[in-house]
């Protein structure tokens, strides 16, 4: 299964660059997204992650501490990581 690895800095430019990869992953089961290296993330990428969770068969996101912190700040922890959207927490 293909895993999308998020860059350390998930800014707007990263969202633009990674969108095609996200779209390409549709239709082949649950999207695996490795965000364990993310240190910084902006709204553009956050929206992609929410969208990925809501598209097709959903997405499983492996978060970094920074991503968890962001999810808690923005009230999206359930949206991004709860099991119903195939998310998973990684230690």
């Amino acid at each position: 299964m293909h895993t999308i690895i998020l860059p350390e800095r998930c800014d707007r430019a990263a969202a633009e660059a990674m969108l095609p990869e996200f779209v390409a992953g549709l239709g082949s089961g649950v999207l695996r997204i490795d965000g364990s290296g993310v240190r910084q993330c902006g709204q553009a990428m956050l929206q992609l992650l929410v969208s990925a969770r809501r598209s097709g068969e959903g997405a499983a996101i492996t978060p970094s501490p920074a991503l968890i912190d962001l999810a808690l700040l923005t009230g999206l922890d359930g949206e991004l990581f709860d099991d119903h959207g195939h998310g998973e927490h990684a230690a």
Partner: peptide, 11 residues
């Protein structure tokens, strides 16, 4: 994902 515009503000 197939309809998202990375530039738009949705949240």
């Amino acid at each position: 994902l197939d309809l998202i515009d990375w530039q738009a503000g949705y949240l």
